[in-house]
Amino acid sequence: MDGNSGFFYTFFNLEIAAQYAPALGAGALITLGTGAAVVVTGTLLGLLLAILRALDVRPLTMAIVAFADILRSLPPLVILIVLYFGLPEIGLPLSAFLVTWISLSLALAAYAEESIWAGISSLPAGQMEAARSTGLAWWSAMRWVILPQAVRRAVPTLTNRIISITKNTALGSVVSLNELLNAAQGASSMSGNPTPLMMAAMSYVIIFLPLVVFSRWLEKNWVRG
C-alpha cells in the first residue's frame, strides 16, 4: 500500500476534482433546489394537516392520524420507490425530480403535522377559550393566538426533522434524479477514482453542517411559549 501521497492521490485528486467540478456543481444545485422545495411544501402541508386536525372532526382526524402513522412507519426509500412505479400506472408519469419532491414532502409533512399538533395540544385550553370569549372566530383564534404559540414550541423538533428528511434528497439518485450523489457516482465510475465521491461527501457536509449547528443552537436557546 502506498503512503500518504497515495491516499491523497486516490481520494483528493485535484485533477479529477477540477475535471468533474462542473458536473458536481450542477448536481449540487439540484440537491439544494429539491431540498428547499421539500422543506417548503412539507412544512406547509404538515401545518395544514395540523390545523385540520384541530377542527376536531372525527373522520378527518382519523384520516390524518392514519396518514401520519403510515408515512412515519415507511422508510423514505420505500415511499419513493412505490410512487416511482405507482404513479405512472395511475396515469401520472412524473419526472425523477417530481417523484422525489412529492415523496419527501409527504414524509416531512407527516412529521411536521405531529410536531405542530404536539405544540397545539400542549397549550392550556384557556387560551382558546379566552380568544373565543372575546368574539374571535375559530380561524382567527387559531391564526393569532394558538398557532403562533404552537409553532414556536414545535420549532426545535421540527428543525431536526427537516434536516433529516432533506438529507434524503440523496435517495433521489436511486430513481436517477441527477442530484449530487448521482453525479458523483457517475464521475467516480467514469474516472475509476473515488475523488468525486469524496467531493460530494464534503459538499453535503458543508451544506448540512450549518443547519445541524443551527438546530443545536436552537435547542439550547429557544424560548418556550
Binding site: 392550556p124 387560551q127 370569549s133 411559549g225
Partner: peptide, 11 residues
C-alpha cells in the same frame, strides 16, 4: 368574560 386563570396570550 374574565377567567380564574387570566388566560392572557403569553406571546
Amino acid at each position: 368574560m374574565v377567567f380564574q386563570q387570566f388566560n392572557l396570550y403569553p406571546h
